[in-house]
């Protein structure tokens, strides 16, 4: 099981339904969509793809394994952008 948490040097603001994440150590600016912002808020604490998918399905009243696959792909992208740390447990 892999857990993810956002890096402490990354800070985000919401603007017109999109989120802008500033990484103050890497000097990067990343924008994510509204559902991505919901996931980002959850990543204040350690999360697994499953726990985020559960919260997303509850918030957006949706079902299906596709949601979990979407979350895993999104987390992998955030990791490539160096915005989250992850641990394999």
């Amino acid at each position: 099981m892999t857990t993810y948490v956002r890096k402490s040097e990354a800070d985000a603001v919401e603007l017109d339904g999109e989120w802008i994440i500033l990484n103050m150590e890497q000097y990067t600016v990343t924008t994510i969509n509204e559902v991505g912002g919901f996931c980002w808020e959850l990543l204040r604490d350690k999360q697994t793809p499953e726990s985020i998918a559960q919260a997303v399905m509850k918030e957006y009243d949706t079902q299906g394994r596709a949601v979990e696959a979407d979350i895993e792909e999104f987390l992998a992208h955030l990791s490539r952008c160096e915005l989250v740390d992850y641990e394999r447990e």
């Binding site: 000097y27 600016v29 991505g36």
Partner: peptide, 15 residues
Amino acid sequence: KGYNAPHVLSHLAVQ
């Protein structure tokens, strides 16, 4: 709200 897959829209390095 309607569900859209979470996405990274852009990623820029600033100098």
